Amino acid sequence: MSSFRSEPFLWIHLTGIVLVPLWLEIVWLGLSIGTPLLWFWLELLLLAVVGILPILWMQLVRPFDIFSILLFSVKPEQLSSEQRQILAQFKTRSHRIVSIITAIMMILILWFLDSFAPLLIPINPWSQGWHLIGLIIAAVSLLASNLFLQVPVSVLRILLSNQASLAATEPLPSDQIAREFTIPGFWIDSILAKEQLG
């Protein structure tokens, strides 16, 4: 078996983490718009429910299928045995633990951003706008930042595991992938040249 670390989809999704700071900056800007409508803890709870809980639920129940790019996903039946072993790693207990820890970290980051949101008011041109719009911007951006953090962290956990552990993993049956994973976009036979060569 070749090293699973040469799987390009792992590295493609790992690089998604570079977008997290950008999305968090937009969350921060959104929180600094207008005057808070509710108690700060209630706003944070609502933001967490909208921006963190859905991605956490996905990762716990139907993890994101990493064999996809943008609007296209590799058909489950086209995945190799090694690729299905990688997918099986997303259904393990350790994956769920890492997803929960990541979600808790995101809640702490949200609290931090909200605490320091007043610092942006002097430089935010929309600071006098409607706070509800700011909350919507913050919620959508938090959802995106959570997605671009959860998936790379899960991929990193796999990259840090050893070859023997993956080799001992039972490949996930192709006919289970569609109901066990969140598969975005259109299904196609191949995305990367490596798959065509394999």
Rank of each mutant, 00 (worst) to 15 (best):
S6Q: 13
E7M: 10
E7K: 01
P8H: 06
F9D: 13
F9N: 03
L10A: 03
L10V: 05
I12D: 01
L22A: 13
E25S: 14
T35R: 09
P36F: 05
L37M: 14
L38Q: 08
L42M: 09
E43V: 02
L45P: 04
L45V: 11
V50E: 03
L53K: 00
I55Q: 14
L56F: 04
L60P: 04
F64W: 15
D65G: 09
S68Y: 08
I69L: 15
L71D: 10
S73L: 05
S73A: 14
V74Q: 04
K75T: 14
E77G: 03
Q83H: 00
Q85S: 02
T92E: 06
R93K: 13
R93V: 13
S99C: 04
I100M: 12
I104P: 00
I104W: 05
I107F: 12
F112S: 09
D114L: 11
S115I: 01
S115L: 15
F116N: 04
L119W: 09
L120C: 05
I121W: 00
I123R: 12
S127Y: 04
W130P: 02
H131E: 01
I133P: 00
I133H: 00
I136Y: 07
I137L: 15
V140I: 15
S141I: 11
S141G: 11
L142V: 10
L142F: 04
L142Y: 06
V151S: 05
L156Q: 03
A164K: 08
A164D: 04
A167F: 07
A168S: 07
T169C: 01
P171F: 05
S174F: 06
Q176M: 14
Q176H: 13
S190K: 10
A193H: 07
